[in-house]
Nucleic acid binder design. Structure first.
Length: 423
RNA sequence: GGAGAGAUGGUCGAGUUGGUUUAAGGCACCGGUCUUGAAAACCGGCGUAGGUGUGAGCCUACCGUGAGUUCGAAUCUCACUCUCUCCGCCA
């Protein structure tokens, strides 16, 4: 969440930010509420002070044998008044909280103002898309004819937007997970984490998925647990309500997880293949760092993700999301979009974001510059490093051959136990 | 799933016949004295959040979480969460 003091002291900044995001929000109403709250707070705290003072007199008077009945009467009145005021303050607090948790982050100044993904800013491209000397097939056709992807059986067993990977398809998916993790752990200096795939409500609030986007998440029936939509949620929340040691920063984690998304509102979109599934695999990169380094960390995190695609030889481009396309919690996001031959366009395969203090404030993740210094919120970042299912799809399409077989990119061959082609 | 024990500031830990405890004390940490330097010793400081004030400061809340009893709760009641021990079951 954003800092309430930002709302108070710089309402214009926030108004502009929300306007750019096309988010409607009554800031003046909020400010009035905040002022009312502070007024009541002063009042009730004075009464509590009186109550505390009197409370010390009672045992003293009793000891001295004085009559305390008048004092007790006063205390009773105080108590009633305090309860009444406390209830008012609590009601306002709840209202304020409800509002503040649904305000999106303020975009960084360099984020282009725009309405939709068509206003995103292309930063760079890597390699040209492959030119096919034959009619390329889509990955769902390749996968089915090779017997390595089975969508209809998944439909029978579970439902739409699920997939069975079989044989070398399953092997390829697993090889990609290991390849990506090894790259980030051994070369890029991330510490591996294997997180729980379910979390409780507070964790979902901490990273910003709740309370606003509950319909996007799967909740486990009979429990208060949610299936994670990304490893970002458990990994970021590892440090919730903690003051981190300065010497440990930046903290860098790489985590594999399955990801579960209800995809509410995506009905009819990307219905074929691996692109939009209710369950998919992802290797996620998460960083915790000092505020002044977070934008450098975003650049390096993005490059870490890019290297996956470069090593696999998958042409891609990097775009900076505009204000209209930016995620709720993010201050700035680079998307990596890989060339998907079947779509004949670039498709998102990684999203690298700097949340600044937005998540840290929600989750209470802080650090101290020196022993005497006040705790400050860290900045959190994360990015896909990268989405595994989409990578599999892209490899099948990009490395397909006229005879229907698929070559395995060189760096994956050792993870495939020497297998260099799926046929 | 059953039985029992527990959860207090960065950490250990006292406080649990409700009220002069304002959450003691140790360790760690920070500053100082001493020392060539360090250690030790001694002195002082040392939680978080919110509010208020130009300021020193003052006030309020917080003892796992949430309700409740009471004029007053770390302390009493209830529910829940988590940890530990034992038993059962299980990959």
């Amino acid at each position: 969440m954003i800092d309430i003091k930002t709302v108070r002291n710089n309402p214009e900044v926030l108004k502009k930010a929300l306007e750019n995001r096309h988010a409607k929000f009554d800031i003046d109403g909020f400010l009035a509420l905040d002022e009312k709250r502070r007024g009541l707070l002063v009042e009730v705290e004075q009464l509590k002070n009186k109550q505390n003072t009197n409370s010390k007199l009672i045992p003293q008077y009793k000891k001295e044998g004085k009559d305390v009945s008048a004092l007790m009467e006063e205390m009773k009145a105080l108590s009633d008044a305090i309860k009444e005021l406390d209830a008012k303050v609590n009601a306002i607090d709840e209202e304020i909280e409800k509002i503040v948790y649904t305000i999106p982050n303020i975009p960084n100044e360099t984020v282009p103002v725009g309405a939709s993904d068509s206003d995103n800013l292309e930063m760079r491209r890597w390699e040209e898309p492959r030119k096919f000397e034959f009619e390329p097939k889509a990955h769902w056709d390749i996968g089915e004819s090779l017997g390595i992807l089975d969508f209809s059986t998944a439909g029978k067993v579970t439902g739409a937007r699920f997939t069975f990977y079989k044989g070398l398809g399953a092997r390829l998916e697993r090889a990609l997970v290991n390849f990506m993790l090894d790259l980030h752990i051994e070369k890029h200096g991330y510490t591996e984490v294997f997180p729980p795939f379910m979390v409780h409500r507070n964790s979902m609030v901490g990273t910003g998925q709740l309370p606003k986007f509950e319909e996007d998440a799967f909740k486990v029936w009979g429990t208060e647990y949610f299936l994670i939509p990304t490893a970002e949620v458990p990994v970021t929340n590892m440090y919730r309500e903690q003051i981190l040691d300065l010497k440990d920063l930046p903290i860098k984690h790489a985590a594999y997880s399955a990801c579960f998304r209800a995809e509410a509102g995506a009905a009819g979109r990307d219905t074929r293949g691996l692109i939009r599934q209710h369950q998919f695999n992802k290797v996620e990169l998460v960083k915790f760092c000092l505020p002044e380094t977070s934008y450098d960390e975003l650049e390096s995190l993005t490059k870490d993700a890019e290297e996956v695609l470069q090593l696999l030889g998958l042409p891609y481009r990097v775009v900076k999301l505009c204000t209209g396309d930016l995620g709720f919690s993010s201050a700035m996001t680079y998307d990596l979009e890989v060339w998907m031959p079947s779509y004949n366009r670039y498709v998102e395969i990684s999203s690298c974001s700097n949340f600044e203090s937005f998540q840290a404030r929600r989750a209470g993740i802080r650090f101290r510059r020196g022993p005497k210094d006040k705790p400050e919120f860290v900045h959190t970042l994360n990015g896909s490093g990268v989405a595994v299912g989409r990578t599999t799809a892209c490899i099948l399409e990009t490395y397909q051959q006229p005879d229907g077989s698929v070559k395995i990119p060189e760096p994956l061959i050792k993870y495939m136990n020497g297998i260099d082609v799926i046929k």
